[in-house]
């Protein structure tokens, strides 16, 4: 194969490997986090700043349980141990979130505090949660992925297809996309079709009328936290399996998650998911260096000499910020018309 010819197949194999798959899995992780933020916002009426650190908390439990299981030799070959312990981690995270609700948020609900007051208290919860995670695991990055690392590796792909440009499909990516899809489908089914899910929407729609219909507010709040714990733990574990765990990284995830929620239309679950993929793809498409991609596509005379990278990866969080600003300026209600809390 000469570098002079235009090679569309390899160019797209390259994009699949470095843009499509990473963005799909990153988007899935953000989507789960954004869905959790949306649920809290819709039912509990505040923007949960502790979401990123709660994901770190859930992942911390996953890491602790994983190393316990490995030390006992309780593993199944080929499957990441983290996957096996997620259900137990969800239980622990639920307990933590319910405790925080009991200790802090419930008080503000009772005195009918303004939404902004509860937001401020969630910032407090964010610092406490982040502190607990650093206290237990330390602030350094760590990996906890074991089992088979690839569904297929670059080498296997090349051998199979004969292409020059390989595609690797990591186990963590496969798990992320599959599990996120199933979980989102479950949450939507739950909200649209089950009696409890409908009651949650009713409570979110009109609290007083929900009360008059005999819907128990405390139960709605608890179910919300249980769902949020599941989403949070799974999102955190999948992100950690994919990119490794670091408390600071998780803390910073708050920005792209909030950007996703606002882009999609705050309070709209479907919007949160669409927003998450929009943010993920923007982040990766804008920070990807297109040099090799263009070399595949363009004749030799037009080959770029620079990296053809629009924005350095160190600025990836700025992209979430810019998206946020653009949306708030042009279409504050987001892609899917969301609703904004009005204090009564």
């Amino acid at each position: 194969m000469t570098s002079d010819s235009v090679d569309i197949i390899n160019a797209f194999a390259l994009l699949t490997n470095f843009v499509l798959l990473p963005a799909l899995s990153y988007g899935s992780q953000l989507a789960l986090g954004a869905l959790a933020v949306t649920l809290v916002y819709s039912v509990l009426r505040f923007s949960n700043f502790a979401q990123g650190d709660s994901m770190a908390f859930g992942t911390m439990i996953v890491i602790l349980l994983t190393s316990f299981m490995i030390s006992r030799g309780w593993t199944i070959s080929g499957i990441p141990t983290a996957l096996l312990v997620i259900p137990i981690a969800i239980v622990f995270t639920s307990m933590y979130l319910l405790t925080m609700d009991r200790l802090i948020y419930r008080h503000y609900r009772k005195i009918k505090a303004k939404s902004i007051t509860i937001v401020m208290s969630s910032i407090g919860v964010m610092f406490v949660t982040g502190g607990i995670v650093r206290f237990v695991l330390g602030a350094t990055a760590q990996k906890f992925e074991d089992g088979e690392r690839f569904i297929f590796s670059v080498r296997e792909f090349k051998a199979y297809t004969g292409l020059e440009q390989g595609i690797a499909f990591k186990t963590s990516q496969f798990l992320t996309i599959t599990i996120a899809f199933l979980l989102v489908a479950f949450v939507f089914y739950f909200l649209q079709k089950t009696k409890t899910g409908k009651a949650m929407r009713a409570y979110s729609d009109n609290k007083e009328l929900a009360l008059l219909s005999g819907i128990d507010p405390d139960k709605m709040v608890q179910i919300t936290w249980l769902l949020v714990a599941a989403l949070t733990t799974i999102a955190g574990a999948l992100y950690g399996l994919d990119k490794g765990f670091a408390p600071q990284q998780y803390h910073l995830l708050l920005l792209p998650i909030f950007a996703s929620v606002i882009v999609g239309g705050i309070g709209s679950p479907i919007g949160a998911i669409a927003g998450a993929f929009l943010v993920a793809f923007s982040e990766i498409l804008l920070t990807y260096a297109y040099k090799k991609f263009l070399i595949y596509l363009l004749p030799l005379s037009m080959h770029p000499s620079s990296l053809v990278q629009l924005i350095g990866t160190e600025y990836k969080y700025a992209i979430s910020f810019v998206i946020l600003v653009i949306v708030l300026l042009i279409k504050p209600t987001g892609l899917f018309k969301g609703k904004v809390i009005v204090d009564e």
């Binding site: 409908k198 009713a202 729609d205 009109n206 007083e208 009328l209 008059l212 219909s213 005999g214 819907i215």
Partner: peptide
């Protein structure tokens, strides 16, 4: 049973879902 003056339906739910919620208990 009570019908409040304002905010007496669940606006983002369908008519049928509104009725289902009425019979929640």
């Amino acid at each position: 049973a009570f019908v409040p003056q304002t905010k007496n339906v669940f606006p983002s739910m369908t008519v049928e879902e509104n009725l289902q919620m009425g019979g929640f208990i």
